[in-house]
Design a protein around this nucleic acid. Sequence first.
RNA 1: GGGGCGGUAGCUCAGCUGGUCAGAGCAUCGGACUCAUAAUCCGUGGGUCGUGGGUUCAAGUCCCACCCGCCCUACCA
Length: 512
Amino acid sequence: MFYVSTPIYYVNDAPHLGHAYTTVAGDVLTRWHRQRGEQVWYLTGTDEHGQKIMRTAEANGVTPQEWSDKLVEEAWKPLWQHLEIANDDFIRTTEKRHTERVQEFVQDLYDKGEIYKGGYEGPYCVGCEEFKTPGDLLEGDLCPIHKRPVEWLREDNYFFKLSEYGERLLEFYEANPDFIQPASARNEVLQFVRTGLQDLSISRSTFDWGIPIPWDDKHVIYVWVDALLNYATAVGYGSDPERFERIWPADVHLVGKDILRFHAVIWPAMLMANGLPLPGKVFANGWLMVGGEKMSKSNLTGISPRQLTEHFGVDAYRYYFLRAIPFGQDGSFSWEDFSARYTSELANDFGNLASRVAAMIGKYFDGELPASAEREEAVAGALAETVAKADRAIGDELDFAGGLGAIFDFVKLVNGYLSEQEPWKVAKDTSEEGRARLATILYTAAESLRAVAVLLNPVMPGTAEKLWASLGAEEHLGALAEQRVAEAGQWGRLPAGARVVKGEILFPRLES
RNA sequence: GGGGCGGUAGCUCAGCUGGUCAGAGCAUCGGACUCAUAAUCCGUGGGUCGUGGGUUCAAGUCCCACCCGCCCUACCA
C-alpha cells in the first residue's frame, strides 16, 4: 500500500496557500500512484489540541471543540473538496479513534520505561502563560511580547528519553539516505542530531485542552506527540492490527519545512521506542514567497486559494505551484507569473493544441479519427521517453516541476510537428496518398493527446477528463482513471473510428 | 555569536568534481504560416555571472574578505 500523509493542519485559522500547496502535492502524488494501478492511501486531517487553539476559541467566545468543528466543517473540508483533493481519510485529533490510541501509545512507552517524571525549568511569562527560551528574551529578561520581566518557574513534566535515540537515528539516516528530503533538509537534521539530543517534555499541566496522560490526568499530552501519532492511529494502530499491518508504515510524509524536525527526529524516535516500523520518507517542501516574503497565517496579506481558483480555475491552480516551483525549494509566486504560465503553457501550448487537432479532425474527417497509414517514430519515441521521465520524476522523486516540464515539452513537440507537417496544406491534396498522409498526421496528433490526457489526469483531473471526452476515448479505452501510466506511452492505443469532437475550450483566455 | 543556503539576461531559474559556461523558459523584437483560444513555428537582441582581492596557463565554477537576502541554533504549532 502506498501511503502518503500531509501534515495535520492546526485549525487555529482557515487554510492558506501553504496548506493547499502541500495538500495538492500529496494529491497529485497519490493520484499518480493510483494511475499506476497501485493501492494507495492518502491521509490528511487537522490538529486540534493545544494552548493556542484554546486561546483562540476563548477569544471567540466558544469552546475549543466548537471552534475546531466550525473551522473543519466550514473552512478545511470544503477547501479540499473545492481543490479536488481525493483523500481517503480525514483524521481529527479530537476524535476518539485517535485520543484513545494516543493514550495507549503513551502508556506503552511509560510501561517500557521510556517516559519518566521530571521537571522543566525556565523563564516563564505570566502574560503569555508559557515558557520562553533564553534566546527569546529581550535585554534584562523581558518577555518580547509583554515587555515585562519573566519569572523563573519549574513545572513538573513527563519526559520522553529522546536523548537516548541520537545514535540510532543517525544510523538510520545513514542507512536510509533518502529518508529526509531534500538534501538541504537532511543536512539540517543531521547537524541537529549530531550536536546531541535532549529529552523531550511530553506533557503540559498549565492548560487542559489536550489528551490527558492516562496515569496522571493533571497533565495533557504535548501536542506534538499527540499530533504525530495521527499517522498511525488513522490507519488502525491499536484498533485494527490487520489494517495497520497492511497500510503502515507511511511511504511519504509530506511536511512543511517548519515542522521537519518533529517528523524527522521526534517521530522516528517515538516509533523506535515502541518497536514500530519507520516511515519511508519525510519530504519537506519550501515556503511560498510573495514579493520576497514568506506567506503564512501571520502574514494576512497572503492571497487565499479561492481568490486564485476563481480567476484561474481549480486545475490551473493545481498545476501552477507544482510546475513553477521545484518541490522542496522555496519559491516565489506572483499573480503575474501565474498569468504568464497560464497563458503560455496552458492556454496557448496545451489548450490550443487540443483545440486545433479536434478542429482539423472535424473539418477534414467529419470528426471520425482516421487510421494512421504509418507510425511517426519521432513522435512515438518522444512520447515513450516523456512517459518514462514523468513517471520517474513525479511518481518516484516527487519532482513535480521536472515531470510536468517533460509533459509540456512533449506538448510543444507536437505543436512543432504540426507546424512542420502542415496538415492544412496536405488537406488540399485530395489524392489517395494525400488523404493517407493527412490521416497519419492527425492521428499522430490525436494519439499524442490521448497520452497527455492520461499523464495530466493526476494533476488536472477536470481538464484531462474534458480532453478524454473530446477524443472520444472512453468508448474504446474505458474510463480515464483506469488508464495506466505504464501503458500511456504505448503507441496506437486510440483506435481509428473514435468520435473526436471539439469540446469546450480547455483554458479560456484570462480577462485582461 | 555559531552553522547552512542563495545573490547569473526585464522576470523565474540551469550551470556536477575549474578549461566552447555565458545558458533555458517566459516577456521583447523580426520573419513564416493560417488548422487553432490573434493561437503555432522559426529566428534576433539582451548579462563586467553581488563587491574587492587571491590561486591558476585557465574561475559564475576554487580560496579569503566584505555587502545583501533567507534558514537552522529544540519543546506556540
